[in-house]
C-alpha cells in the first residue's frame, strides 16, 4: 500500500512538470512581460524605462525558456521558466505580480470556497440519493416516469438561470437573504444560504438521474432478485442490499471531487461576490497576473492527482477484492 502511494506520488512529478510547461507556454504566447508591466504600471503616462525596470525587479527580464547568453546549465536555469517554477514545487508560491503573498491569499480565500462547496456537495448528495431511492422504490410507476421527466427538464436548464432567477426571486423580491457579499465567522451563514440552495437545486437533475441508474442497475442483479424471492420486504431490499452495494461507485465518485472543492466555483462566487478561490482565479486571468494563475493551475493539478490517488485507495477500503498493484 505504502509503496503504491509513493509510486503514485513519484509518477505525479512528471505530470506536474508537464502542466507547468503547458501553463507557462500558453501564458507567454499570449502575454509578453511587457504587457504585464504595462498592466501593472497603469495606463496614464507610462515610460519605456519604467517598464524595463519593472521587469528587472520582478525577474521578467530574462529569456523565457533558453538563455543563449549564459553558459552550461545556466542556459536553462537562468530563465524565467526555471526561476519561477522551482519554488512552486516547494509550495512556495511567492508574491503575486502586484506584490501580494499568494500563499497567504490562498489560505484566506480557501475558506469561503469550502464554505460553499462542502455543504453543496453533502446536502446535494443527501437530497439526490434520497430522491433516487424514492424513485427506485416506485420504479415503473407514474412517479418514476414523471420524476424522470422532471429531472431531465431540470438538467436542461442552464445553471445561469438558476443563479439569476434565484437571486432575483429570493433576494430582490422576497427580501429573505442579502443579495451578495460575505462576512467572516458565523455571520457568513446568511450569505451562504442562497448559493448553497442554488448549488443543490442546480445539481438535482443530473445527480439524481445518475444515482437512479446506479440503483436500478443494482436492483436487477441476481442477488437482489434472490433476496426478494426470499420474501424480504421491498424497503429492506432497497436499503440493505441495493444502497449498500451502490455505495462503492457513490463513494469513489465523491472522493475524486473532494480535493477539488478547494478550487471553488467560478460562476457562483463571482455572482455572489464571495471572496473564494474561484473568483480569485477569474480575477487573475482578467488582470493577467501570471504568478497567481500559475499557482492556481499548479494547485489544481496537485489536487486533481490527489483525488485520483484517493479514489484508488478508497476502492480498496470499500471493496477488499480490489488489490493495488
Amino acid at each position: 500500500m505504502m509503496a503504491y502511494i509513493i509510486r503514485r506520488v513519484l509518477y505525479a512529478i512528471p505530470i506536474l512538470i508537464g502542466v507547468n510547461i503547458l501553463t507557462f507556454v500558453l501564458f507567454f504566447v499570449i502575454n509578453s512581460p511587457d504587457d504585464m508591466a504595462r498592466m501593472h504600471l497603469g495606463v496614464k503616462r507610462v515610460t519605456p524605462e519604467a517598464i524595463e525596470s519593472w521587469k528587472r525587479e520582478h525577474g521578467y527580464d530574462k529569456p523565457l525558456l533558453y538563455n543563449d547568453r549564459a553558459a552550461g546549465a545556466a542556459r536553462f536555469t537562468d530563465t524565467i521558466f526555471f526561476q519561477k517554477s522551482l519554488k512552486l514545487f516547494q509550495f512556495d508560491f511567492g508574491l503575486s505580480d502586484s506584490g501580494r503573498d499568494i500563499g497567504y491569499d490562498i489560505s484566506q480565500r480557501m475558506w469561503p470556497s469550502l464554505a460553499i462547496a462542502v455543504p453543496v456537495l453533502f446536502i446535494g448528495l443527501l437530497v439526490n440519493i434520497s430522491y433516487a431511492l424514492l424513485i427506485a422504490f416506485f420504479r415503473a410507476t407514474y412517479i418514476d416516469f414523471w420524476s424522470v421527466v422532471l429531472l431531465v427538464m431540470m438538467m436542461s436548464i442552464s445553471s445561469l438561470f438558476y443563479i439569476i432567477g434565484g437571486q432575483y426571486l429570493v433576494s430582490k423580491v422576497l427580501h429573505l437573504v442579502p443579495i451578495s457579499g460575505y462576512d467572516t465567522g458565523l455571520a457568513a451563514i446568511k450569505f451562504l444560504i442562497l448559493p448553497v440552495i442554488i448549488g443543490v437545486v442546480g445539481g438535482i437533475g443530473a445527480g439524481t438521474r445518475w444515482y437512479r441508474t446506479l440503483f436500478l442497475e443494482e436492483i436487477n442483479k441476481d442477488y437482489v432478485r434472490t433476496a426478494r424471492a426470499k420474501g424480504l420486504s421491498e424497503r429492506l431490499v432497497l436499503f440493505r442490499h441495493v444502497l449498500k452495494n451502490a455505495l462503492i461507485p457513490i463513494l469513489t465518485g465523491v472522493v475524486v471531487v473532494l480535493p477539488l472543492l478547494f478550487m471553488g466555483s467560478l460562476i457562483t462566487e463571482s455572482f455572489f461576490g464571495i471572496p473564494g478561490l474561484g473568483s480569485y482565479t477569474i480575477d487573475a486571468i482578467n488582470r493577467q497576473d501570471f504568478a497567481i494563475v500559475r499557482a492556481m493551475v499548479f494547485l489544481g493539478s496537485v489536487l486533481y492527482i490527489l483525488g485520483l490517488i484517493l479514489t484508488d485507495i478508497s476502492y480498496t477500503l470499500v471493496d477488499p477484492r480490489v488489490r493495488l498493484s
Partner: peptide
C-alpha cells in the same frame, strides 16, 4: 496516459481563456 492526465489536470477554464487570447494575437 501521461498526455491525457496532464491535460485533464489543467483547469479547463484557464486552458480555454489562454487559447482564446492566443487566437486574438
Amino acid at each position: 496516459q501521461y498526455l491525457y492526465t496532464t491535460l485533464s489536470s489543467v483547469p479547463g477554464v484557464l486552458l480555454i481563456a489562454a487559447a482564446i487570447l492566443m487566437l486574438q494575437v
